[in-house]
C-alpha cells in the first residue's frame, strides 16, 4: 500500500515543473537588514500550530546581539530556513518525508514520523528542528504554508522585507 502511494507520489513529483523556496531577498547580505523581531517565527507558528511559539516555527532567527557587543561573534542575527533541497528524504527510515505535490515543498508526515531525528542530523543547513510535547515529538520545518493563497506567512510579516519566495527550478 505504502509502496504504491510512494510510487504515485514520485510520478506526480515528476510532473511538478516549478519548485519554490523562501529565501533571503538579496542573498546573504539581506541578513544585514534583519532586526531580530521574531515576527516571522510567531506568524509561522500561529499559522501551523495555532499558538505563538518560536520553537514551533519553520524559520529561526538566531540572536547574538550581546555576543556581538562582547566581541565574541561577528554576526548579530542569523536566519535559518529550509532550502527545500530534499537531502533529508533519503535518511528517513520510515519514509515520512516527501515532496508535497501541491507546493513542491519537502514535508514531513507527522503520522508516519517515528521521531528518530535522523533527518535533523542529516540536514546540511541546520534548518530542521523538533519540539517535544508530552513525550510526543513534533517535527518543525518550513512547508511553504501549504501553498496558501497569500504566500508563506513569514514573508508578509517581515517588516524589513528581508524574505522572498523564489523559483528554483
Amino acid at each position: 500500500m505504502n509502496k504504491l502511494q510512494d510510487k504515485e507520489t514520485k510520478e506526480k513529483a515528476k510532473t511538478i515543473k516549478i519548485l519554490y523556496r523562501v529565501e533571503l531577498k538579496e542573498g546573504e547580505s539581506a541578513t544585514e537588514k534583519c532586526v531580530g523581531c521574531s515576527l516571522c517565527e510567531m506568524a509561522c507558528s500561529l499559522y501551523h500550530h495555532r499558538e505563538c511559539n518560536p520553537s514551533l516555527s519553520g524559520i529561526k532567527v538566531i540572536k547574538k546581539e550581546c555576543e556581538w557587543i562582547n566581541g565574541s561573534s561577528s554576526k548579530i542575527f542569523q536566519l535559518k530556513i529550509c532550502t527545500q533541497c530534499g537531502f533529508c528524504i533519503q535518511f528517513c527510515p520510515v519514509g515520512a518525508i516527501r515532496i508535497a505535490v501541491e507546493t513542491g515543498a519537502v514535508v514531513i508526515d507527522d503520522k508516519k514520523c517515528s521521531g528518530c531525528l535522523k533527518c535533523i542530523r542529516a540536514c546540511l543547513f541546520d534548518a530542521l528542528w523538533y519540539n517535544k510535547r508530552e513525550d510526543k515529538i513534533i517535527m518543525v520545518k518550513c512547508d511553504l504554508c501549504d501553498g496558501s493563497s497569500d504566500g508563506p506567512k513569514c514573508i508578509g510579516w517581515c517588516p524589513k522585507g528581508v524574505l522572498t519566495l523564489r523559483k528554483i527550478k
Binding site: 515576527l39 506568524a43 507558528s45 500561529l46 499559522y47 500550530h49 495555532r50 499558538e51 505563538c52 511559539n53 518560536p54 520553537s55 514551533l56 519540539n131 517535544k132 508578509g156 510579516w157 517588516p159
Partner: peptide, 20 residues
C-alpha cells in the same frame, strides 16, 4: 518552548496584521 496559546488565531492574526 511552550509558547502562547491564542483563543481565536485567525481573527487575532488579522487584527495584529492590521495594526502592523
Amino acid at each position: 518552548t511552550r509558547g502562547v496559546k491564542i483563543a481565536e488565531p485567525e481573527k487575532f492574526e488579522k487584527l495584529a496584521k492590521h495594526r502592523f
